[in-house]
Design a binder for these strands. Structure first.
Length: 560
RNA sequence: UGGGGCGUCGUCAAGGGGCAUGACACCGGGUUUUGGUCCCGGGAUCCUAGGUUCGAAUCCUAGCGCCCCAGCCA
């Protein structure tokens, strides 16, 4: 919506196809995840690419679950995939397909290839096949079964389907070229025997097609025009084309490869993400620290922010690692425009305003969103005892610190100017327990009639009205930009011990109590937050989505 | 030392013979009742070396570097 999707080399190719009429002006893409894990932000890039192209070229984009390996795939994953694509804002208009829908057709095509002498049944074990395959620099050797009569292969293949052979003892292979410099062309396996229960076809099949064979045929069956995938499949394109050429299919999609997304401080392989989940290093696939769509959603990221991010990172063939701060910028950029503002104190310190009448309560008008006048205003209560952020007070501040300190005057947002007159400490520990201040009644609402300036405005919450809540602060899961570079090559050695920080005694402005999970807002001066599903009516629980940019924190870090 | 790709600010990404462009990050400055937002300003001669050309990031040649491929995974 209104997001301008920049041009990229794939769109250029499509433009060229449209000019030449290769697909008759038709544009039909697909998003083909394997349901063996949850979708992550790398998939979001692919989703935006495929669905975005369909949208901009008045074409179509299918959702296809690439479920050719029953040992790794589960319905839990297909459900989450559906949910995530929809949440991201895309619609496959009922075109939800499964590679397993094509098992019968794939099987029939395979028989054709056998009859044509282009495929054969092979009895080499996995280990033998590896030996016969050759190496990167040496050609492979022919399988002893390579030249057996098609009728014999056909018989064997039918018996494979009938379940006569145990797993791992027999395969159907394409007969291409054992001396090809492209190892993918050295008689690749088309079918393997797997006596496994499939999440959709149940026990109907005990042979399953391999990716290279199934994918191109699935694309062809769906009359896909542009089959967009990641760079590591570039070597597979000749195979993709070989199958379709040998089958002489009516349509022949164009495979196009682009660079997958990598991000700093982030792991992006499904296998490793699964590991994080299984080892209990995170709370689950939807842990707000996970780069999964579900994790980001729980964290408070919006579909708009994610889409904006995907538009900005571009699409090219360079191996790239995007700075995670760009993602964070996109989240802030979106939330800044729409998140209502509230005040919440995460690490409270009590302030007593000694010259303010005891028992008095005033209600001030607060602007809900300075970026959106239509968001209106609300009333917030003020009293003699309030809480402010511990970080907003320093007893002995450096010169650049212009928040509260002894003798210093600051503004309480929407309320009054106050000046700190006394610091109360615990006599035994020496810890500051309370601040005593005076207020200037003339500054009601936060403006000084005499034009006197203060350097800082603090957020606060009324002691008598505050709601207690839990707030969870998140930081990068890893301490180094590329977790794969961790000592020993083990990402465990780069895990950030403080990626999650739970704060319990947080004090929130009254309106923040009782909000529903998913509610997003800004805590002024702190960041964007959203209500976690763990919240109850008795206890609000907020996740910090992202901090606000913080010039003071930066300066402080440099000074330290 | 087989094959397939890729080298443009710190990071992504445009530009495909005619003054190197945008975003993020970073550094300055201005506005500000969020040290937020917003607004101004700052930085790369394009992997290297030759060549072609009036003119090269773009074309040619030779190097160098990085990524991917030897699953009955996708």
């Amino acid at each position: 919506m209104g997001e301008a999707t920049p041009k990229n080399f794939i769109r250029d190719i499509i433009d060229e196809h449209n000019r030449s009429g290769r697909f008759g002006g038709r544009v039909h893409t697909r998003f083909p995840p394997e349901p063996n894990g949850y979708l992550h932000v790398g998939h979001a890039k692919s989703i935006c690419l495929n669905f975005g192209i369909a949208r901009d070229y008045a074409g179509k984009c299918n959702l296809r679950l690439d479920d050719t390996n029953p040992t790794k795939e589960e319905v839990e994953y297909v459900n989450s995939i559906r949910e995530d694509v929809r949440w991201l804002g895309f619609d496959w208009e009922g075109r939800e397909y499964y590679a397993s829908d094509y098992f019968e057709q794939l099987y029939q095509y395979a028989e054709q290839l056998i009859l044509k002498g282009k495929a054969y049944v092979c009895h080499l074990t996995a280990e033998q096949m590896r030996e016969y395959r050759g190496t990167l620099t040496e050609p492979g050797k022919h399988s002893p079964w390579r030249d057996r009569p098609p009728t014999e292969s056909l018989d064997l293949f039918r018996r494979m389907r009938a379940g006569e052979f145990p797993d791992g003892t027999i395969t159907l292979r394409a007969k291409i070229d054992m001396a090809s410099p492209n190892i993918n062309m050295r008689d690749p396996v088309m079918y393997r025997v797997l006596h496994a229960h499939h999440h959709r076809t149940g026990d109907k099949w005990c042979i399953y097609p391999m990716y290279d064979y199934a994918h191109c045929v699935s694309d062809e069956m769906e009359r896909i025009t542009h089959s967009i995938c990641t760079l590591e499949f570039e070597d597979h394109r000749p195979l993709y084309d070989w199958f379709l050429d040998e089958l002489a299919t009516p349509v022949h999609p164009q495979q196009i490869e682009f660079a997958r997304l990598n991000m700093t401080y982030t792991l992006m392989s499904k296998r490793k993400l699964l590991q994080l989940v299984k080892e209990g290093l995170v709370r689950g696939w939807d842990d707000p620290r996970m780069p999964t769509i579900q994790g980001m959603r729980r964290r408070g990221y919006t579909p708009e922010a994610l889409r904006g991010f995907c538009d900005r990172i571009g699409v090219a063939k360079n191996d790239s690692t995007v700075d995670v701060r760009l993602l964070e910028h996109c989240v802030r950029d979106d939330l800044n425009k729409r998140a209502p503002r509230y005040m919440a104190v995460l690490n409270p310190i009590k302030v007593t305003i000694e010259n303010y009448p005891e028992g008095q309560v005033e209600w001030f008008d607060a602007v809900n969103n300075p970026e959106d006048p239509a968001a209106g205003t609300r009333k917030i209560p003020f009293g003699r005892e309030i809480y402010i952020e511990q970080d907003d007070f320093m007893e002995d501040p450096p010169k650049k610190f212009f928040r509260l300190s002894p003798g210093k005057e600051v503004r309480l947002r929407y309320a009054y100017f106050i000046t700190c007159t006394k610091v109360v400490k615990d006599p035994t520990t020496g810890r500051i327990t309370e601040l005593v201040c005076t207020y200037d009644p003339a500054t009601r609402g936060g403006d000084s009639p005499d034009g006197r300036k203060v350097k800082s405005t603090l957020h606060w919450v009324s002691a008598a009205h505050a709601v207690k809540g839990e707030v969870r602060l998140y930081d990068h899961l890893f301490t180094i930009e590329n977790p794969a570079d961790a000592p020993g090559g083990d990402f465990h050695n780069a895990l950030n011990p403080s990626s999650l920080q739970v704060l319990d005694g947080c004090l929130l402005e009254p309106a923040l109590g009782g909000q529903e999970p998913g509610f997003r807002c800004q805590f002024e001066r702190l960041g964007y937050f959203c209500v976690d599903p763990d919240a109850s009516s008795a206890k609000p629980v907020f996740n910090r989505t992202v901090t606000l940019k913080d010039a003071w924190a930066r300066a402080e870090k440099q000074g330290a």
